[in-house]
Design a protein around this nucleic acid. Sequence first.
DNA 1: AATGGCCCCAACCGCATACGA
DNA 2: CTCGTATGCGGTTGGGGCCAT
Length: 315
Amino acid sequence: MGRSPCCEKEHTNKGAWTKEEDERLVNYIKVNGEGCWRSLPKSAGLQRCGKSCRLRWINYLRPDLRRGNFSDEEDELIINLHSLLGNKWSLIAAKLPGRTDNEIKNYWNTHIKRKLISRGIDPQTHRLVNSTITTTNDNATSGTTKNMLCNNDNKRNKSNTSNGFQLMNVQGSTLHFGLGSNLEYEVSASTSDGKYYCTSFPTITRSNNINISERGHSNSSSNSVVSMEQGGYKEINLDLSISLPASSKINSINHEIIKSEEEQYMTTYQYIGRGTRMPVLSSIDGSVCLCYNLGFQKKGNQQCSNCAMPIVDQL
DNA sequence: AATGGCCCCAACCGCATACGA
DNA sequence: CTCGTATGCGGTTGGGGCCAT
């Protein structure tokens, strides 16, 4: 047969813990250590279910808990991790020392949700509620390629403002892409089929007409969208995958090779919040390293062994 | 000062998975 | 392999505190 029941449902207290109960639990765990929650209440002289003891210890009594308000950095890290992991509170908590999944979950529901909504971002999808780019399927459109019409007045933004980027959702994971400080314009767009695309480059001033192709349907023979329209348009096909640093570089975000003086600008940033960004790739071959996001960042002047980028905690 | 509404968070509940007999 | 419990996780709730009226 299986194990015996974890606790007697009868004769157990419920509701808020008293100071005495807390002391009993702390003292018991100090002497005997964590674990064996089933037998703990009886051994510690507590009229509580083992499950309740575990929760009380993990969420409130553990000595390594970091009490107090969340910092801005923690806020942005939670948002960032949530965009990658979804409601996996325990995984998110694992990246925030001293914080519990319950605490983060509560904080998300009471603070961050509201914060994102005030930014015009859907907290579940991490996508902008209202797109800033209109699409038309006009006569010039061929195949599944769509022409995105950008209005110069309100669809392009100076990069040194915090308003000039779009929150991009790429196949279930959310990334924020925007411009480096030297870039003058940025463009991002979503298509009606739920796929999102973003591109940024300085030569777009020659035209407002940006050509964005759907992945796998471009005229190119490969999945990567590499065709180039007149006027210096660039197409970027975003297809995110994540791997551990030890693995080979991720090549699934494909960029057209930028030529001449534009090359130096070809840096993609991940935005963690509206005002903070960090580079997620450095090479023009489009390789992406998410080492920072996954908590593998190094300290000091070291470079990431995967992408060779100097580690930047925050720009 | 009293009251009602809202917010926050600790704790509970139910489910999924791990694990032991 | 099956069965039943232990554990862990995420969603939800309820009560205390705060604030506006």
